[in-house]
């Protein structure tokens, strides 16, 4: 039962990340289409977008597991490798499945750089969450000691 619960929690976490990345991919690509006068997105783009997001999320929960300590910064060997691989995945998927077919090639660069910034922001978010939880805990500890000393 404990193993099942752990796997369930792990997969829920993965799906949460996957949802965030998928939303980012679709929003960004959609916005880039929109400003260039394209008002439709192919099923292939959506499908490959969700697949790429799933791989990135899987890599995140596997490589950057919860033991990672962000207190000293978001850039450490594992996170740099993850950023590099994930940027390649998003970029390669966009190029391989011609997400911006008929549009200038600079779109691939803009998409890749924006997704990289998004991934960095995700790590920053993890750091902030960890710091906020730590602050809350220490506040409770101080209050406990004050009331029970």
């Amino acid at each position: 039962m404990k193993k099942f619960r752990d796997i369930f929690l792990w997969s829920m976490n993965m799906k949460l990340y996957m949802g965030i990345y998928f939303s980012a991919v679709i929003f960004l690509a959609g916005f880039m289409y929109f400003v260039q006068g394209v008002y439709e997105m192919t099923f292939l783009t959506i499908f490959t977008g969700i697949m790429a997001s799933m791989i990135v999320a899987l890599l995140q929960v596997t490589m950057l597991d919860a033991r990672c300590d962000y207190s000293k910064g978001i850039f450490f060997s594992k996170s740099l490798v993850w950023l590099f691989i994930c940027t390649i995945i998003f970029s390669a998927t966009a190029i391989a499945f011609e997400w911006f077919k008929g549009l200038p090639n600079i779109n691939y660069w803009i998409f890749t750089i924006t997704m990289l910034i998004g991934l960095i922001m995700m790590l920053w978010g993890e750091k902030l969450e960890q710091e906020a939880n730590t602050d809350k805990l220490n506040e409770s500890l101080r209050s406990y000691k004050k009331n029970n000393s």
């Binding site: 033991r67 805990l137 220490n138 500890l141």
Partner: peptide, 16 residues
């Protein structure tokens, strides 16, 4: 003994 705890640090997997 909580009275001898200097500080706590939260980890993302829920451990402290």
């Amino acid at each position: 003994n909580i009275q001898h705890v200097e500080s706590l640090k939260s980890q993302l997997n829920g451990r402290i």
